[in-house]
Design a protein around this nucleic acid. Structure first.
Lengths: 246, 246
DNA sequence: CTTGACATTAACCTTACGTCATAGTTTATA
DNA sequence: TATAAACTATGACGTAAGGTTAATGTCAAG
């Protein structure tokens, strides 16, 4: 048997919260001692864990109560639905982070930003985009598809594609003196994106992730460094700008 | 001059919200017409945009008011601080998504899970971990440091490191018949992680990201496929298991 | 026998609005 | 021009999930 304090520290919730959960009938103590003290057993503790789990998923407490008390409730369906919502949330947070970064740069005078760009992160279209993208991202099928795509090419085709890739890097080096934000560099990024399409179709986030990884893997770094010492940095910068300007 | 309704639809907020913002002095209308109607100009619209921006970052409305009204407020500092909080949020959401996936599998009977694993996502240690990781992730210095590290090696050293890397992949292929969760495969992953250390020190998230990217970049995929057709898939699986077991 | 840690209930406070209710104003239409 | 539809205003209450006192009771240790 645990006291409120014990449960409180074990589960990391406040005593007030336990009182409240008792009050709304979400988690009633196993029994009450003569002195009126609440007492909880292991089953109660487990139930609390479940409550916390769903609470973290932004379920309302009363919904959680209904869910835990109704044995007919389809937990899997509810979770899957919430999984998509979570991915949308993830995308929104990622977008916010990018906006924060951009705004800092903007305030430091390192970056020009239109009012539109500054605030489009929470437009309705963006929200819809998050939702759509979330559904795609949640589908593991999409990853498998990209693997199938590559496997479908013949050996020569593969070689052609790789050669085309190398040409992109060569052109990128040529564009370096003009700056990462030059139309030349941006055009190369665009071609690179198109090139990636032979394999899979990365979204903007993934595109940036790829460019970043190019600078973070020893193997790649070596190859790029051999072509030009500043290529990885420049490449990432150019992609960053490309992504920022959508 | 805009009416409440116009602003409301333009900015995607309710009329009630505008009333409320007026009430707390966060966004007072440019002027009030004789009939008492609120009227807003473009400046007000811009201020509303700023309000929405900070609101989205979870600032309290009264803090936003203070922030926007005080010209001495250090916006950059506030944003940077909030950037870290946002990354922590991102990590938490990522963890939640993983937990949801696992829980679904668990409910479908596809996966064994200890009670501990089911609920560790919101333990205090985890929260602390998020915060710490967020600070690291947010610090751009860390990226620059990894570049410096690699540049510091001599040419022979670099070659040695790359050879060691290839040896890791060869050993990984050798471990394939035992399964991705075999101690052999896991040991190779551990070595790979250590190997990466020559270049930078990825955290678990980044490790997984790297393994994923290996399967998503044509260049890498080609190299790996040449060694063994299932290497990328197996490699990622093994890293996934490694990361899951921390 | 006192002190400090812990327990109880009760009641008000909080945030950022949503939701009526009531009433005046403007605009579109019959 | 009458009237309905649409918009505006203020005021007041409601909400979720507890936080924050306050007043009081209980228990183990010194």
């Amino acid at each position: 048997m645990y006291t409120v304090k014990e449960i409180s520290t074990l589960a990391g919730v406040s005593v007030r919260t336990l009182h409240y959960y008792d009050q709304i009938g979400l988690l009633t103590p196993t029994r009450k001692a003569e002195n009126g003290y609440r007492q909880y057993d292991d089953a109660a503790l487990l139930r609390l864990q479940q409550i916390l789990f769903y609470r973290e998923l932004d379920f309302k407490l009363l919904d959680i109560r209904a869910l835990l008390d109704d044995p007919n409730f389809d937990q899997v369906a509810a979770l899957e639905e919430h999984g998509v919502a979570l991915i949308a949330r993830l995308l929104r947070v990622e977008n916010l982070i990018a906006t924060v970064d951009d705004t800092i740069k903007h305030l430091k005078g390192e970056k020009e930003m239109s009012k539109k760009a500054l605030f489009e992160a929470f437009s309705e279209e963006k929200q819809a985009e998050y939702a759509k993208e979330a559904e795609e991202k949640y589908d593991p099928e999409i990853v498998r598809a990209s693997n199938r795509k590559w496997k479908g090419y013949s050996a020569e085709k593969k070689q052609t594609i790789l050669d085309e890739g190398n040409q992109v890097y060569v052109d990128m080096i040529a564009a370096m003196p003009k700056g990462a934000d030059s139309s030349e560099a941006q055009a190369v990024v665009k071609r690179w994106r198109k090139h990636m399409d032979y394999f899979w179709t990365p979204n903007l986030d993934q595109l940036l992730g790829l460019a970043t990884m190019y600078g973070q893997s020893p193997e790649f770094k070596t190859k790029f460094d051999a072509m030009h010492p500043d290529l990885t940095t420049f490449f990432r910068e150019a992609v960053e700008i490309y992504v920022a300007n959508k």
